[in-house]
Simulated scan of single mutants.
Amino acid sequence: MDTNSPVYIRRYEPSDAPAQLELRLRNRTFMAPYDPVRPASFYTLEGQREQLERSLAGWEKDEEYAFAVCLVEGGELIGRVALSSVVRGAWQNANLGYFIDSAHNGKGFATEAVRQAVAFAFGEAGLHRVQAAIMPWNRPSIRVVEKAGFRLEGLAVKYLRIHGQWEDHRIYAVTNDSIE
């Protein structure tokens, strides 16, 4: 981690459920255009506990590495960054997803969290490639991955069901030999 960074990432803990719930509730409307339709149970303490348990189990199985994004000053949980769908063998790839509390957008926090997650992917996790799928109209998210060194690889038509409809996504990727 850059010692001048205003944020750091850390492995989630079961005790993060209340803070994660607050974060999700506070950003529910803001994130709706970018998220799949979620059941009402997702926005409950039990729902967030289940999410964290799945994330921690995924970590143990080398299938997912989810991190809390926290402010250095005060330690407040302000977002999430995750390396999911880890595939080993010939691919050595993970998908990247992230979000930052709307109150903290536009400050470079997402870019820094992504950089730290990619450093983990290529270091401790030993991956070769990380990819992100972003809707073409989501310019702020595209800017995050571009600043983090990702390259545009192409368009995946009707790639994910987001906010109730199939959305095209641009695929961005970075490999361990292309990061400074």
Rank of each mutant, 00 (worst) to 15 (best):
M1F: 10
D2R: 15
T3L: 08
S5C: 10
V7K: 10
Y8V: 04
I9H: 04
I9N: 04
R11G: 03
E13P: 02
P14D: 00
S15M: 03
P18L: 00
A19K: 00
A19L: 04
Q20R: 03
L21G: 03
N27V: 08
N27E: 04
T29V: 13
M31Y: 04
A32S: 06
Y34A: 03
Y34R: 00
D35S: 02
P36I: 00
P36F: 00
V37D: 10
R38H: 01
P39S: 00
P39K: 00
S41K: 02
F42Q: 01
Y43W: 04
L52S: 05
E53I: 14
R54N: 07
A57C: 05
A57M: 09
G58W: 05
G58L: 07
W59F: 15
E60R: 15
D62A: 07
D62H: 08
E63S: 11
E64G: 01
Y65W: 10
Y65N: 04
F67D: 03
V69T: 12
V69P: 03
L71N: 06
G75I: 12
R80G: 10
L83D: 05
L83I: 10
S85N: 13
R88I: 09
N95C: 02
Y98P: 04
F99I: 02
F99M: 05
D101M: 05
H104F: 11
H104C: 06
N105W: 03
G106R: 13
G106L: 11
K107E: 07
G108K: 09
G108D: 07
F109Q: 09
A110Y: 13
V114G: 06
A117S: 11
V118H: 04
F120E: 07
F120H: 13
F120M: 07
G123L: 10
E124M: 07
E124F: 09
E124K: 13
E124A: 14
A125W: 06
A125I: 10
A125M: 08
A125G: 06
L127H: 03
A133Q: 11
M135D: 12
P136V: 13
R139K: 14
P140C: 13
P140I: 06
P140A: 09
S141F: 08
I142K: 12
I142V: 15
V144D: 08
V145L: 11
V145I: 14
K147V: 10
K147L: 08
F150P: 15
R151C: 12
E153D: 12
G154A: 08
G154V: 09
A156V: 04
V157E: 03
K158N: 04
R161E: 06
I162D: 02
H163N: 15
G164F: 02
W166I: 01
W166G: 00
E167I: 00
E167F: 00
E167C: 05
D168R: 01
R170A: 09
I171L: 15
Y172K: 12
A173V: 11
V174Q: 15
N176A: 14
D177C: 09
S178Y: 06
S178D: 13
E180S: 15
